[in-house]
Design a protein around this nucleic acid. Structure first.
Lengths: 122, 122
DNA sequence: ATAATACCTGAGCAGATTACTAGGTTATTT
DNA sequence: AAATAACCTAGTAATCTGCTCAGGTATTAT
């Protein structure tokens, strides 16, 4: 789990789409202008959002992106994790070098924390 | 607000100190060994933790770090923010380029989110 | 006193990430 | 046919991460 500007951009853009949902698909250039984000950067973010099945695209003029599912079904955590490919390969990857209780304990602590944040953002 | 390995290291180390609190100050080399974190890197993190008044240091042999305040008074958010100097200078820094309602709205959305996460981690 | 311990500081560095630019291709509408 | 907008690929400057190295300085045990 990671919380950075990248994730914020994605959340902001998704929010923008949700707001203009009734006017049909929203083009990235519109979002870019409204939210002051680089168009090409948005394209990269939306590649991931599309792969995660959060948005669907319509090509050609008048096209753009629209939410793939109902806005209330989309968790903020999903959006953030779609763009922030989490490299959270915890030191003790699963079980291997959990020699002492200590390391397991702190590892568990952090995992719990991550999970709770994730469920909070849902 | 940012959640990364750096913050996790800090939280883990603070947790380690809290666990060994009764045995007096905890040396960074002990933490480094127990948690598998580079000593010099820990030193850098603790410089910030000390500046934020989260830990106090005891020099000399037998010295180390101890919690500056009661462990229950320390918010995880404080620890994370002490090391992850948040560059969260939001695009519309205060008021200047909030021309349209749109930008203000999403900005507010994100700020609320940040605040709620912060209060959750307390 | 002196050695050991452990905090403190700063410089540097490989690798990754961030935010962005540039320049295309493909699909669709008008 | 021409315009639009998704889609794709590659490159880049700046920053961040996690770490090493190389030295300090302060405190305490002997």
């Amino acid at each position: 789990m990671k919380l950075s500007t990248k994730g914020r951009y994605a959340v902001t853009a998704m929010f923008d789409i949700a707001l203009h949902h009734d006017e049909g698909p929203v083009s990235l250039s519109d979002i870019a202008e409204r939210q002051g984000i680089s168009l090409s950067y948005l394209e990269q973010l939306f590649t991931n959002l599309r792969k995660q099945g959060l948005v669907k695209s319509t090509r050609g003029p008048g096209g753009g992106y629209s939410l793939a599912i109902d806005s209330e079904q989309i968790a903020i955590a999903d959006v953030i994790e779609a763009v922030d490919e989490n490299v959270d390969a915890t030191r003790c990857g699963g079980s291997e070098n959990c020699q002492n209780h200590q390391r397991c304990l702190t590892h568990e602590l952090w995992e719990n924390l991550s999970n709770q944040i994730r469920s909070y953002l849902s």
